[in-house]
Design a protein around this nucleic acid. Structure first.
Lengths: 131, 131
DNA sequence: CTCGGTGTATTATGACGTTAGTACAGCATG
DNA sequence: CATGCTGTACTAACGTCATAATACACCGAG
């Protein structure tokens, strides 16, 4: 599925939320697909079920997941993506953070772009492989 | 100087640490320059002095800052940059995070690169303007 | 119906980051 | 010397995050 890093500065439930979004936009999870149960994913990621539950709850509120009680959680038929404005805000914030750390260690824009390109492909390939 | 976001997931002292590194690599702070006092910067950023103190302390341990008691904190004559291996690790991690969020919201690599390029220039320009 | 799985809610606990306040040691300036 | 600035250290408090242990409501399968 995907990994999670407890040492990371961003909370685990957010990593799970973003991880699930990645799986969907990469096609590893398709509309109507059954998502691992809270307890299963918690075991798999070696994380507390409550932490997974929080991520699932947020995704459900956002319309990305739908819940059938007693049956499981599924990817919504039309996974509501973020509006373009919100999407741009998210991307811009992330870009600012990345640019900031790149500059802070003296990396050039080309360096940053190269590393980004490599990482982008890497993430895509890993997900393609596991699906 | 630079800004700080309490809502960010990464701790404030780390934002200050990276911000100072940016100032140095961008030339806004040069070796031998006097750095704002802990209390001054704390007032300016609307942050607790202890938070600034922690960032300064780390930078001092890393050889980026040197301290003259009763006088102030200065940029070290030869600000010891990170080793190439560490530098690459930091950049790679940051790139992975950025790529992950970009993919999670369905942004293409080109989108991510464009936004990165824009943000990189923006950070550079802002620092140039303030120096 | 019963059983097992699902999501959900609640409470308690420990670790961590941040803030606030206070206090101390050292140096420069007057 | 005395004052005021510097960095540094310590404690208490609060909020968030993650964990843990339950308990409940719901649904499908047997």
């Amino acid at each position: 599925m995907f990994n999670v890093n407890p040492g990371e500065s961003s909370p685990i439930w957010r990593q799970i939320e973003e991880g699930m979004r990645r799986m969907i936009t990469l096609g590893a999870l398709r509309p109507g697909d059954l998502v691992p149960s809270v307890r299963d994913l918690a075991l798999q990621l070696r994380v507390n079920p409550n932490t997974v539950a929080r991520a699932y709850q947020r995704l459900t509120e956002q319309g990305v997941f739908t819940v059938k009680r007693g049956e499981g959680t599924f990817v919504a038929d039309q996974p509501s993506m973020l509006r373009r404005s919100e999407r741009n805000d998210v991307l811009r914030d992330a870009a600012m953070r990345y640019a900031g750390t790149a500059i802070s260690i003296g990396a050039s824009l080309d360096d940053a772009v190269d590393e980004l390109s490599s990482s982008y492909d890497k993430v895509v390939r890993e997900h393609r492989r596991k699906s």
